[in-house]
């Protein structure tokens, strides 16, 4: 349930609070409104110390050459120029694109099909208990801390003592055993499969909650007209839960861009950088190579990408909701 329900209030809250009654504090005067400002002080002070100042420092550090000790040497945009020519940096973004497929696109598409099938196909005949049990199975991986999910899979996929290879041996398929996370050609794909397993429950739960809103009469009318399940899915389910689809896509895409824990636990970006991602690459520069300025530049680019993506999504979402 962790990330699960969060997006729902997000949908509800996306209408700005001010619409109903512009600028009316109880009592209604500007003086009153100013009195409430005191309540923002703790939040704003904490925000300034923990978010604003460090972020500004990070941007500044990205314009310097710094090993983390001594005084940083101002180098302007040198780090960013170096980024553009750095193959490892571009590779990390390509891997990130693969993880967006595995963490956002595949789970959303699969989640839509599963939610729709559970909701209006299985649920009608077999009852809510069956549906709830199946949903719980899909959701279970979501409750694990991501690092623990990594530990689970790291153990299963261990090439020498892990359960998968040992199982393949046991059932006589020894020729299929692989070094799942250690083979450069295979590691990224293995991580992708794991991430689908981790993420799938989130869209399923959100979409099933969204489907509760849909007027049952819509489905009944369509069924009466003899519309097939696919047609109902395409013409009723999809348009009706469009807000949820946007929120899930945005949320999971951002999660994919930020991914660090699974990479750290499963592969440490390896083998030979085959699964490196920008978040992990910046961590390496910060704490392993002590190229702090360069790491800060990677983190800044990643931030810009995430903020830009959020703005674009919200722009698309607004008109879609008003339509």
């Amino acid at each position: 349930m962790t990330t699960g329900t969060t997006a729902l209030p997000g949908v509800a809250a996306s209408e700005p609070p001010s619409r109903r009654r512009p600028d009316a504090a109880p009592g209604g005067t500007a003086r009153h409104s100013a009195g409430y400002f005191v309540y923002l002080v703790p939040g704003l002070v904490l925000f300034a110390v923990v978010i604003a100042l460090p972020f500004a420092m990070n941007v500044w550090i990205s314009l310097t050459n710094w090993q983390g000790v001594g005084s940083p040497e101002w180098t302007g945009l040198d780090n960013y120029r170096r980024l553009l020519a750095d193959d490892a940096f571009w590779a990390s973004f390509r891997h990130n694109a693969a993880l967006i497929v595995a963490m956002a696109i595949v789970p959303t598409a699969l989640g839509l099909l599963l939610a729709a099938a559970l909701f209006d196909y299985i649920g009608k005949k077999f009852g809510n208990g069956t549906v709830a049990a199946l949903r719980a199975c899909f959701y279970l991986p979501q409750i694990l801390p991501i690092a623990v999910a990594g530990v689970v899979w790291g153990w299963i996929l261990n090439p020498t003592s892990g359960a998968l290879n040992a199982s393949l041996e046991t059932v006589g398929l020894g020729s299929l055993t692989r070094d799942w996370l250690g083979d450069p050609d295979l590691a990224l794909f293995t991580v992708m499969v794991i991430m689908v397993w981790v993420q799938l429950g989130f869209p399923v739960v959100i979409f099933m909650a969204g489907l509760q809103r849909v007027e049952p009469a819509l489905y009944e009318a369509a069924e009466m007209d003899g519309a097939t399940w696919m047609r109902r899915f395409w013409h009723i389910t999809l348009p009706q839960i469009r807000p949820e689809i946007y929120v899930v896509l945005l949320w999971t895409t951002i999660a994919a861009l930020k991914v660090f824990g699974p990479i750290y636990v499963l592969t440490r970006g390896g083998p030979g950088g085959a699964t490196n991602v920008p978040a992990y690459y910046s961590y390496q520069n910060f704490f392993e190579r002590t190229q702090v300025g360069y790491g800060a530049a990677i983190a800044t680019v990643l931030t810009l990408l995430i903020v830009a993506l959020s703005v674009v999504f919200l722009r698309i979402q607004r008109p879609a909701e008003e339509a």
Binding site: S18, Y36, I51, M57, I61, F260, G295, A296
Partner: peptide, 27 residues
């Protein structure tokens, strides 16, 4: 309280949730 500029304040607060932690970690 509906203090002035609340939409902007809300957006600023939300930044704390959107920023990747890598952009804060070293400072």
């Amino acid at each position: 309280g509906r203090v002035k500029g609340r939409m902007w304040l809300l957006i600023v607060f939300l930044l704390a949730n959107t920023l990747p932690h890598e952009a804060l970690v070293y400072p």
